[in-house]
Structures are given as C-alpha cells and as structure tokens.
Design a protein around this nucleic acid. Sequence first.
RNA 1: GCGCUCGUAGCUCAGCUGGAUAGAGCAGUGGACUUCUAAUCCACCGGUCGCAGGUUCGAGUCCUGCCGGGCGCACCA
Length: 556
Amino acid sequence: MTPEQLSQHLVDALSALADEGVLQLADGVPDQVRVERPKAREHGDYATNVAMQITKSAGRPPREIAQLLADRLLRVADVAAVDVAGPGFLNITVDAAAQGVLAGDVLAAGADYGNNESLAGQRINVEFISANPTGPLHVGHTRWAALGDALARLLSAAGADVAREFYINDRGAQMDRFGASLVAAAAGHPVPDDGYHGGYVTELAARIASEQPELADLPPDEQLAAYREEGYRLQLAEQQRELEHFRTHFDVWYSERTLHADDRVKHGIEQLRRQRHLYEADGALWMRTTDFGDDKDRVLVRSNGEYTYFASDTAYYVDKRERGFDRCIYMLGADHHGYVRRLLAMAACAGDDPDKTIDVLIGQLVKVLRGGEELRLSKRAGTILGLGELVDITGVDALRYTLCRYPADSSMTIDVDAVTRQSSDNPVYYVQYAHARLSAIIRGATDLGIAVPAGNGDYDPAVLDHPREGDLLRALAELPRAVQQAASMREPHRVARYLEATAATFHKFYDECRVLPMGDEEVTELHRARLALVGATRVVLANGLGLLGVTAPERM
RNA sequence: GCGCUCGUAGCUCAGCUGGAUAGAGCAGUGGACUUCUAAUCCACCGGUCGCAGGUUCGAGUCCUGCCGGGCGCACCA
C-alpha cells in the first residue's frame, strides 16, 4: 500500500463518517489527507494529524475524531494496526504483504516509476542562465545550469510540456564594450576601463587576429563591429559547448536581436497598448506598472526613440505567451531580485494574472572556497572560475549534484576540494555507491542463475517483514510524492535529499539483510523477494539521479 | 531612507508548505569486514532555532518590532 492509497482510505473513512452523520463537518470533507512518515519507530509506519486539522470544522475534540477514524480504518484489509496517540495523532501500521507488493510495482514501472500527471496539460517555459555572450560562464551561471536543467527534468516527470530556453543578451552597449576590448587587446593596447579584462579576452583577440588578419586594415568602426561579431560567435559557441558537456541542453537559444529585427518589440508594445496601461510623458512611452504594485512606472521607449531593456523583456514575455506557454519560469540571480516586482506588474499590464503565468526563482550567489580560502571572483578583474574549469576539476556528476543539493534561494559555499574528494563527505558518491552496490548484487544473482523478479507474481511480498525491509519499501514508496512535491514547489534539491535518505535506508538494509544465498544454500522465497526489493531500489535511485542529470554507475 | 532576502550544532546545510523528543554530513571520540562493494554500518559528543513580543490546542515554520549579514532602488544593460 502506498501513502497515496492510505491517504485515499482516510478520505473515504471521513466521507463515510460524514455520510452516516457520525461527524458533521462544517467545512466539508477534505479532498486530501496528508500522511507522513513519522521519525520515531513507535509511531508506526505512517501517521496523520487530520483529526487535529478538522477538530474545528467537526466541533469535536481531536482524540475523539481520531478514535472514530481508527475504528473505521481498521476495517481496511491492508491496515494492520491503528493507534491514537498524543493530542490526536493517528499512527498506522501497514500489513507487510500489502507493503511488499510495492517492489513489484516499481519493477514493472521501471524508468517510469516516480513520474506523475500532476502538471499534465501545462506548457512551461523555463528560462535560465541567459548570460551575455561576452565571456565565460561563471559559478553562478553553473548553479543555474544544474538547477534549471534539473527543474526542467522534474517538471517533465510531473507531466508538463517543458521548453528550456536561454535568452542571449546580444544587444546593447555591453556588446560594443566587448568589441572594443577585443580590438584593443588584438592591437596590444590596454583594454578600456569600462571594458572586459580577463585573460580570455587576450586569447580571444589573438585568435581572431590570427584567423582573420585582414581585419587590421578595416576602418575603426568596421573593425570594432567585426571583432564584436566574431567574439560573440566564438564565445556563444563556447558557452554552448560547455553546457552540452555539462548535460544541460537548451531547446531554444533566443537572441535579443531577433526580437528587434522581427519587429516583435513593436508588436509586443502594441499588444500592451490594447490593455490600456501605457501612456506618454516627457517624450517617452511609459508602462503604468504602479497599477499592479510596482513602486514606479517604467519607460519602454526613451525620449530619444530607443527601446529600453525593459521593452525587450516585455516583448519577450508577450512572445512566450503567444508561443503558447501557460507558465513562464524565470531564474534570476539575487542581484536582480529588485526586478521581480516590475516583471510581475508587467505581466498584469499585459492582461495576465502573474500568479498563474509567472514563477520567479531567486538564486543566491555562490561563494567558492579552495584551499580553505574564498576565491574573489570578478569578471572585470578577470579572476573568473568558469564552468569549464570547474567541471575539469570536479567532474560533471559531482558538480551537478552539489549544486542541486541546496535550495536556490539559500546562499551556498562550494568547497572545490570537498566536491573533488571522492569520499563520504561528498553525498553524490554516497548515493552513487548505493547504486553500484545494488548493481553488484544483481550481477551476483545473474552469476548464480537467479532471475530478478520482473514484477508482482514473481515473488512473495509477505516474506518482506524485516524492519529494514519495511523501512526500505516505505522509502521507495515516497518517490512519486517527492517528485510531485519538488516539481510543484520548483525545488529540485528535494530530490537530492530524498535520494540521500533512501540510499541511507538501503545501506542499513544491506548491513542487516543478506540478499543472495551463501555457499550451497537453497534459493528461498526470501532470497527472491529481497532480490525484487534490490531491483526496485536500483530503479528508484537510477530514476532519481536521472532527474538531477547525474549518472547511476554500475561499478565504482 | 525605502524594498527584497537570509540568520538552525565548531563548519556546510536540511527541516515534508503549523505537529510528537529540532535532523544529516563534515570535524572529534570509540567500535564493526574469512561469504552480496568498508566510498558502508553502529555508538558517543555537540543547540536559549539571531533577540523580544503576538496569533493557537501546538511556532524553527505564520504576524509585528528590533539586531546582524547579503542584495537592489536609471529614459543602464
């Protein structure tokens, strides 16, 4: 029995009590009852506080309601025991056999286990990183790469139709500064103060100069444009190469320039105009974002006739909506959080309900520790630790996992030495090691000629009555909930935490429960059932790691 | 000044969207491998959840005010 089924039994019990008039619920029967896994063993396999939740609605003391529910629940065949405890908790123990069938369910579902339909029918646009093509991707971008990609995988697993999108900020003054920096570096001159410094500028300039020596003869403005464009092309290609290597694939690379070239900015503004939140003042075109909570109105078209950056963003949003996305997820760095309010106000000005169409995730910046010291990272000073370099040091799996382990809005310090270390202080190896151990058992079974059960009917679920087996089964049963919850809360780190807890549960099981027959031992039902459990656990860990874009090794 | 955000063990961080005695890992101490991977397991040590009020059966979690760190407040991008 899964927690979902148990939850349904509780709802059924409540409806029955209400129908019979035993309980009068002022607020009606809740459509969902949350069951949780208690921390303390003596609190049973599952627990719920529903009796306390509805005490007001029912106008009866919680313990009394709990007792009514307990009596009702005991009639369910798969429920072995129910206790009323404390102020009104319901502690439920599930029948071993009913729990044991889960292994078969997991084996039968295979790679699909954990997926759900909670977001079915939704089209979601996930935009992340969106860096300037004027330099390498740094640690902050890397965090978004790992987190954004994991989130996209999660949303897909929850049934949504997801597009991953990278907005290329390839327009504006910073591109010219980039071009000027390259020209200066190529000529051996010092880079302008407001330009880009870093060693990569020198390398890039030298490469362009040697590949296209004829550029030196161009007039200054043409030369700047040529360097700018070539630098753009090469830098973007580099970003794309590094991200693919980091297993972060984008479905759409969206250039800000094309937004202007195709008159989509103009179109976007026309769409806004219909909603009547635009006005002209001081020769500029404004959006009345204060209508929806912004502290001041925002300019779309400056008095000199040029579009603002905000105009691009507005048009981009309109474009996303016109391309059919129900929801747009923005992943922004903490240094952009001041932007959120106007973003939401803008969507409201466009006639949308921002609560329904926009999710903004704010990511705190990442500190990097190496050799016990904090690295001071600055693009201007050129002291950048790039995605590429970081991956070279730590490997893709360790880096992705480490960055996915923490909620986006918590500041984190990443200790390069710890991520690199291949030991237990690195949780990614803890989880991967569990998968490798499981794989080793299955290899052993194959060597002994014992088939791994493919589903229910291939083993006896009732023999899985050891406490460690029950713990493991209940852990496996949590995956769908973990996925659903992580997806709806947009919090990939929950998957990582779930994996660590499940790996720990497995390791404890492994420590106490022998799976394969020893020596000349006969193959028993217990061996077969445990093998089913092992196979199911491997499926769960592999699926979970897959959601984070981390590999599940057969051997370590 | 206004706004956003964070404050949990010595360190890095969780805490299931208000529940039972606040949890992991690392660091420290001590144990467990002649048979499925010891990258593992077990035990001990470690806390006024920044402070003070409030909401209620119940608050690390919600509200208010302070204190402290980070960030943002352009017809820049």
